[in-house]
Structures are given as structure tokens and as C-alpha cells.
Computed example of a mutant assay.
Amino acid sequence: MTTGEDRFFLTWGRVFDAVDPTPLIDAVKPHLVRMSRGEVRIVEVCDSLQEASAQPYFFESFFMLCQQRIPYGPGYDDWAAETRKKMTAGKDIHFLGVTAATNS
């Protein structure tokens, strides 16, 4: 069933690749149907957080992610690998809400 609604998720967007969104999409897409309780037709990475900021749970999810310290420097590679592993397992992906479909 396709409802035509847009669903938003917040996660560590660039931990797979700084430019190419494909690895991120490939990691999270299998989990989106369960989280959003509906069919997923298209998955896109937003250009900025502004696009999702009006969603009901945006600030709660953003705050939760901000509480996690990113260890820049020597510990970053291990942190990034663990974060990718979690996301591939369906963790650290926050469902923000549902909005009416856009005509895009």
C-alpha cells in the first residue's frame, strides 16, 4: 500500500562516505519499512537538516545524536566503523514522523 506520505529519519549521514549517499542508503533502507510502517519507494538523503526540522520528533532525535561524542583524531576510525555496524543493524536510525506527500 502506498500512502504518498514522506517519512523522515535522522542518522549519521556522512559516516559511510563524505560525498556519496549510496552506502548510507544501502545500509538503512532495509530497516525503513519496519520503522515507518509502510512501503518505501524512494530513499533520498536531504541536502540539509532544515528539510527535516519541522518533523514531530526532529529535535528529540537531534538532541540524542548530539549527546554522542564523536572522537575526532586517533579514535575516529574505530568510532566510525562501530557506527556503520550499528546503522547496518538498524540502530542509530531515528524515525522523525510523517508528512503529506509533496509533488516532487
Rank of each mutant, 00 (worst) to 15 (best):
F58P: 00
M87N: 00
H94A: 14
A54V: 03
T2W: 09
F58K: 05
S48A: 15
S61V: 06
D6W: 00
E44R: 13
N103P: 00
A101N: 04
P56E: 05
Y72W: 13
V45T: 05
V15N: 11
R14W: 01
L96Q: 10
M1G: 11
R84M: 07
M1L: 11
V19L: 15
D26I: 09
I70K: 01
D26G: 13
L32R: 11
E60H: 03
C66Q: 10
N103R: 12
S48V: 13
A89Q: 07
A81L: 11
A27S: 08
L96P: 06
D92C: 08
I93P: 13
E39K: 15
A80L: 02
F8P: 12
A54Q: 08
V40E: 12
F9R: 11
D17N: 14
E60V: 03
W12Y: 08
H31K: 04
M35H: 14
D6R: 13
T102I: 13
E44C: 08
Y76V: 14
F8C: 15
T99V: 06
L96T: 09
T2K: 11
F95D: 01
E82M: 07
A101H: 04
A100G: 04
S104I: 01
T2L: 09
D20C: 06
G4V: 07
M64G: 03
F62E: 01
D47C: 03
G75S: 07
T11G: 02
S53E: 09
S61N: 03
L24M: 12
P21K: 02
S48E: 02
E44S: 13
T102S: 13
P30C: 10
M64S: 02
I70R: 03
I25D: 13
G38F: 08
A100L: 13
S104P: 04
A80K: 12
A101D: 08
E44F: 00
R34A: 03
A54G: 06
G97P: 06
